[in-house]
């Protein structure tokens, strides 16, 4: 659904044109390139970079993401993002499976500060968009295929973009959501809100058997039973298949957020 709704302007592909209506003034909380011929909304990361590259503070972009983040945290990453869904799909391929070290999560904050804020401000160029694999997949490749004028403008940067896309396509077959975990600056912004968002993941220590199945099905390899408010949690709700984990609100009186010793374990001590 996340891939279809923000990309519902099918006419863009038929007529090789961009949607230029008023919906483009709204940012989606998804990594969805606004240069894609079928895109109806604008990319929040592209918007932030544009304002930084023009020397302005992107209040509208930051405000939009903050309002969404304070409501649902990273839930849009886990349920609606088309690039996340693509990575989930690729991981289903039979391939050598590896896990990435936890420190790689900090890379996305470096990408956010460097490629989205600092470098665009210093160079007046949208550097993350130039390299974004989602942009290459949904905008770069379709435009190159559809428009001979664009084909004639291909330079070495295009092949760098293709290499980055191929890297993430390949690694997604081996690692669960590598781009979301290590690179995505949108996920980095929304992850700040996981602890205080309106929607929360609650863990019930009384019914948890500590079987660890929630980690196995988690698309980012975290332990929702140990830290339901983990900034890495995508709120995909896959783990809520277990009755010990459920979706709740920040006002609900439940012991979420901190590892609590289950009562039966405490009684056995």
């Amino acid at each position: 659904m996340g891939a279809i709704l923000p990309n519902a302007y099918a006419q863009g592909f038929l007529s090789a044109s961009l949607y230029q209506g008023s919906l483009k003034s709204a940012c989606t909380p998804l990594l969805n390139c606004h240069a894609c011929p079928s895109a109806l909304f604008s990319c929040p990361i592209g918007t932030l970079q544009h304002f930084m590259a023009t020397g302005n503070v992107p209040y509208y972009g930051i405000g939009t993401l903050s309002v969404i983040g304070s409501g649902v945290g990273r839930m849009t990453c886990g349920t609606l993002c088309p690039f996340g869904a693509l990575q989930d799909l690729l991981y289903k391929f039979r391939a050598w499976k590896v896990s990435i070290p936890p420190w790689t999560r900090y890379l996305r904050y470096a990408v956010l500060v460097g490629l989205v804020f600092a470098i665009p401000y210093a160079t007046r160029e949208n550097w993350f968009s130039k390299l974004c694999p989602m942009g290459t997949l949904t905008a770069g490749l379709p435009w190159v295929a559809m428009n001979p004028g664009v084909r004639s403008m291909i330079r070495s940067l295009f092949w760098v973009k293709i290499s980055i896309l191929l890297f993430f396509v390949t690694t997604s077959t081996m690692v669960k959501r590598p781009f979301c975990r290590a690179v995505c600056p949108l996920g980095a912004i929304l992850s700040f809100f996981n602890k205080t968002s309106f929607l929360q993941l609650a863990w019930n220590p009384d019914t948890c058997s500590r079987c660890g199945k929630c980690r196995k099905i988690c698309p980012v390899d975290i332990r929702p039973d140990r830290k339901p408010t983990d900034p890495d949690c995508l709120r995909c709700l896959d783990c809520t298949r277990c009755p010990s984990l459920s979706l709740t609100t920040v006002f609900h009186k439940e012991p979420f957020g901190e590892p609590v010793i289950p009562k039966r374990v405490a009684q056995g001590m």
Partner: peptide, 26 residues
């Protein structure tokens, strides 16, 4: 957080940033 987020968004709309977003995205 929610009030601060709404205030930042409101300030962005007040500064008519929506128009610039539309120009950039389209």
């Amino acid at each position: 957080t929610a009030v601060a987020a709404a205030a930042v968004l409101g300030f962005g709309i007040f500064r008519k940033e929506i128009g610039e977003v539309l120009l950039n995205a389209a």
